[in-house]
């Protein structure tokens, strides 16, 4: 931000937005600790609600500040790529736990596989995400090569609709499986299944929020051919979520149900 502004006297900007986000981020653990460790449910919920509100307000203010006052510098692209490296490792830890259990408990594993788990559902979810990777790619080319914000907006909206469908179908799948007695705590397959797919779906939801933001930026004209970094970053993140789904589905559904 400092490079973008033009002032003639020595100066440095300030921003009030990191502080509310920071306080919100601090309230989350406090809320969890109150709720789960001490069993103070109401104070826990209040702290969590205030924290979430602070994060949302801070993020909105931050975003507004970014797009009203600044020149695009394209740093976001390098930033998001390095962040994705970090994300891959987070998934890696859960894969490590899942695969270790799968290998060391191969003999008892088949007893853990629930009746209702179907590869068909995994296939449908995969196709939806593939389609959404294509649509966001079209959005990116529409903006960067054709400079057509309206067209880009349409493609982002299609991506968003596909992503939302994915989440809805996935939640229905969870409710169905949970009802069969296949829960987070029943055994390591349940733990690994919900942890992997849950972590992945939380990333899908983050991607959806980024898409809402991108649509608002496109609709309001803040994002255009000269400032495409936000859409490029959203797109890179979405492709990552899509590729990660192959590994998550391959592990949670295929390796989980296959008779090895």
């Amino acid at each position: 931000m400092a490079q973008g502004a033009v002032h003639h006297e020595p100066h440095h900007e300030v921003s009030i937005w990191p502080l509310p986000i920071g306080v919100g981020v601090l309230l989350m653990p406090i809320s969890f600790t109150m709720f789960f460790h001490y069993g103070w449910q109401l104070p826990g919920l209040i702290a969590g609600g205030v924290g979430l509100a602070l994060i949302l307000v801070g993020a909105a203010g931050w975003a507004n500040e970014h797009f009203t006052a600044e020149k695009e510098e394209g740093f976001g692209w390098v930033g998001i790529l390095s962040f994705i490296i970090s994300e891959v490792v987070i998934f890696g830890t859960l894969f490590a736990a899942f695969w270790t259990a799968r290998v060391t408990h191969a003999d008892e594993w088949s007893a853990w596989v629930p009746e209702g788990i179907s590869l068909g559902m995994a296939g449908i979810l995969t196709l939806i995400l593939w389609a959404s990777s294509f649509t966001i790619f079209r959005a990116e080319t529409a903006l960067e090569e054709e400079g057509d914000s309206g067209k880009a907006l349409t493609w982002v909206f299609l991506t968003f609709a596909l992503g939302l469908t994915f989440v809805v179908l996935h939640v229905k799948e969870w409710i169905h499986l949970w009802g069969e007695g296949f829960t987070l705590s029943s055994h390591m397959y349940g733990t690994g299944f919900y942890a992997l797919t849950g972590l992945h779906t939380s990333h899908v939801i983050v991607g959806l929020i980024a898409q809402i933001y991108a649509m608002w930026l496109l609709a309001s004209g803040r994002m255009n051919r000269e400032k495409p970094t936000m859409l490029r970053a959203t797109s890179a993140y979405w492709h990552f979520v899509d590729v990660m789904w192959m590994l998550v589905a391959g592990t949670a559904y295929l390796v989980g149900t296959a008779a090895l």
């Binding site: 270790t100 259990a101 408990h105 008892e108 705590s185 390591m188 733990t191």
Partner: peptide, 14 residues
Amino acid sequence: YLGTNFYNPAKGGD
């Protein structure tokens, strides 16, 4: 806090 089994050898964790 949520009863998962990552580190619980009795239910397949390690």
